[in-house]
């Protein structure tokens, strides 16, 4: 079996995988990082979004062997030193979730969106999250949460204004 080496949330992880193992299964079942969810399993819903070399991808549509040598960030790697990432804080403050199933993927997709466009309009936020489905919120509060994080990331020392 091929042996792959990944840097996941800053840690080097070396392991044997069957070539057909999907990245999402490797993360969840071999590395026990169950924050990345499996929703539709058909690259539609975005519950499994992680960052692969800095870009958001649907981990249900990437083979673990394709990621050999890559740097992966999952939802577990977003908070730093016990401090929530502004997106995590935004989803909390703005009630960007109900059941929470879509939230890890939603946050990882939003993080990619904000690194590409730090000043997104509401329309750009909606377009950037096109690949993520939420069956609870109706998206309004998710857009607010991303807007909150965008403001906070632009002014890292001050608190985000209430929106």
């Amino acid at each position: 079996m091929p042996v792959i080496s990944l840097t996941v949330n800053g840690k080097t992880c070396i392991g044997e995988v069957e070539p057909r193992t999907l990245l999402v299964h490797y993360l969840r079942e071999q590395l026990n990082l169950t924050g990345t969810h499996i929703g539709c399993d058909t690259s539609q819903c975005g519950a499994c979004v992680v960052h692969l070399n800095g870009a958001s991808v649907k981990a249900c549509t990437v083979l673990a062997v394709q990621a050999d040598g890559a740097t992966i960030t999952t939802i577990e790697g977003l908070a730093q030193n016990g401090q929530l990432h502004p997106l995590q804080e935004g989803f909390w403050q703005q009630h960007g979730l109900q059941c929470g199933f879509c939230t890890p993927g939603m946050i990882m997709a939003a993080a990619d969106l904000l690194q590409r466009n730090p000043h997104p309009t509401d329309e750009a936020i909606r377009r950037g999250l096109e690949g993520n489905l939420c069956r609870c919120t109706g998206y309004e509060n998710i857009v607010r949460a991303v807007r909150y994080a965008a403001e906070k990331l632009r002014a890292p020392t001050g608190a985000a204004s209430e929106v």
Partner: peptide, 9 residues
Amino acid sequence: IGDLQVRNR
């Protein structure tokens, strides 16, 4: 095409 994650791959 697709969405951001699809376009990234």
